[in-house]
Amino acid sequence: MAKRTILLGGAALILAGISVAVAQPDNSCTTYDGQMSGSALYVLMACPDNAKAQCAAPVNAGTIIQKGVNYRFLYKTRATEIQNSLVVVQLKAMAAQPVPEPVAIKLTRQQLNFACYTKDNKQDPIPADADDVTAAPDVGYSIYDRFHRYGYAPRKELRVLLSFHTSYFNGSACVSTLEKVRRAQFLFADRSNVAGITVGLLTRFGIDTPVAVAAEINHYDHLQVVLANYKKQPQASGCISFLGRSDGPSLEIDVSDLEEKAHASNDFDRFHPEVFTINTK
């Protein structure tokens, strides 16, 4: 009996250890907060004066990362009145040569603690470990583009996209990531061309022609969308953290803060992401 108890206790401890290892929260934002200023992207790299320690290096024209290595990126927002927001991060790894067909888009969503219409306002990450891109669901580029532009997709992909999108409390109301301006931030090209329900229906019925797929998307051999989030006090900066890598000559990271975009005063601010390009060696 005692042996069985010890065995069960041991198994429980091992399982608990595994679950801690899998779901370990990333606290890079807190750790490196002092090294970062607002509205900038940082990458965690070996410090220049101490190769064993990690520093948050600002991403600029001179930043170079190694091919095929995962890097943790941190994005600190400007100090705004926003309390809760979701941030769409598009990771586009440049291919050595253009690909014949656009590659499928990997979708990852980080754990959300201010979701609407869920138990305890929590929503689990997608996949279970949001940093594990290999386990992330994917959707063909043209279907992804059509869904965010016109609002429809074949059932299999519709299920994936409906599970990926969410409703969240932005500090004053519950809003959906599928509202028109917020939906536009998920597009990889031509963001201002997002249809309402009427044009969406006309396109779905085949009466209106959908927008052609942008040719420049064939320059990338890895496309990924990370739906990150932050919660902060008004007048403070938010911070998000995500992993990125590239096996090609460069990595482009487009960042769009959904609440900032939804309240932008002009079309340029509303539909243009912050773009960061990092070369590889």
Binding site: Y117, G151, L162, S176, L178, I197
Partner: peptide, 10 residues
């Protein structure tokens, strides 16, 4: 389906 997808996806 179109209206519900864009307004009440959950």
């Amino acid at each position: 389906q179109e209206i519900l997808t864009l307004t009440l996806p959950f």
